[in-house]
């Protein structure tokens, strides 16, 4: 992991959406995160956890209700032009490419809008360079989206994001619309590009094995809050929040001889009960832990005060009363049973 150069910082970001009945929906609750240059921050969580809201805030498509987002040291504020330094790549490449526009046009458009390569020859050279970055050949220039495979279309989407020379790419489920064999290609490409262009990634996915493969730091979100974060191995190999453990345990491992990870021996059942409450009015009250209704480890304190993220390892933090108390009574080694 390189330096301590922070390219993106979220400080107690809150996002509320008005609701016709009752109080506003709280989609994000006090999210604080940071992304260091040329590293990857993985964000995992299930539908409704706020990960997509967070990605929209990061690229400036929406503004936080409270709290602050800094990109390259500058706060995102109303009226600020959409930052060139941060680009979003969506899950479905075909929905973000115009079906009537060739690959070349899709790329030159971006260059023209941002006045990046004023002369025609420059633009041509830049298009070839961009295609080269994503391992497409110049013969793909004249193709229309329908003439591309899913993997190729996603490469074009990435090339287009790269056209404005961003520092940060926000990748929202970049591999989930792709076939298994193409996923590997895409992950290899992203890892290579990160090295070559010193890119920083926010990698949002529900696929823990993909997130693990590319991330340095992983943040686990539940109902608009970060409930656990830390180096990838800490979070996924020794998950401490009961939600992270349930999530890790639920992932089917492609190895018939092995049970899913996350089922920590001797820790008792971590399987959660019920289904996620939606954020907002129907969600949990502001007292107490948001995970309480599903938590098999809940205690009295969990109903009274919401847990804050607290250190449980050198860079590993968790928002769980039980995990924090257990860890405090014991040395901070990796073998601590939670």
């Amino acid at each position: 992991m390189s330096g301590g150069d922070v390219v993106l910082r979220a400080t107690t970001v809150e996002k509320e959406y008005p609701s016709r009945r009752g109080p506003p929906v709280r989609a994000l609750r006090g999210v604080s995160l940071q992304l260091e240059r040329a590293t990857t921050l993985g964000i995992v969580g299930e539908s409704g956890c706020g990960k997509s809201t967070l990605s929209r805030l990061m690229v400036g498509l929406e503004l936080p209700t409270r709290g602050q987002l800094d990109i390259m040291g500058e706060p995102v504020h109303p009226g600020r032009a959409l930052a060139r330094s941060i680009q979003l790549v969506f899950q479905d490449p075909f929905s973000s490419l115009d079906p009537r526009v060739t690959v070349e046009k899709a790329l030159t458009e971006v260059l023209t809008v941002h006045h990046l390569a004023p002369e025609r020859a420059q633009r041509q050279a830049r298009v070839d360079e961009l295609l080269g970055h994503v391992a497409l050949s110049p013969r793909h220039r004249d193709r229309y989206p329908h003439e591309l495979s899913g993997g190729q279309a996603q490469r074009v989407a990435i090339a287009r994001a790269l056209a404005v020379e961003p520092e940060i790419l926000v990748l929202d489920e970049p591999t989930s619309a792709l076939d298994v064999s193409v996923r590997a290609e895409m992950l290899n490409l992203l890892v290579r590009l990160q090295g070559e262009l010193e890119l920083s990634y926010v990698f949002i996915s529900h696929d823990l094995s993909m997130v693990r493969h590319v991330s340095d730091i992983i943040a686990v979100m539940y109902l608009g809050q970060v409930v656990e974060q830390g180096p990838y191995a800490d979070v996924l190999d020794t998950p401490r929040h009961p939600y992270t453990r349930a999530l890790a345990a639920a992932v089917p491992v492609p190895d018939p001889g092995r049970r899913p990870s996350g089922q920590v021996d001797g820790a008792g059942a971590v399987t959660m009960v019920g289904e996620a409450l939606t954020a907002g009015p129907a969600g949990p009250t502001s007292d107490g832990c948001p995970y309480l209704p599903r938590c098999p480890l809940a205690e009295q304190v969990c109903a009274e005060t919401a847990p804050q993220l607290g250190a449980i390892g050198p860079r590993h933090r968790v928002a769980c009363h039980v995990a924090l108390r257990t860890a405090r009574g014991l040395p901070l080694s990796e073998d601590v049973p939670v």
Binding site: E46, L247, A250
Partner: peptide, 10 residues
């Protein structure tokens, strides 16, 4: 579906 729901269904 989310993985936890998938697990319940499996």
């Amino acid at each position: 579906l989310d993985v936890t729901i998938q697990r319940q269904i499996l």
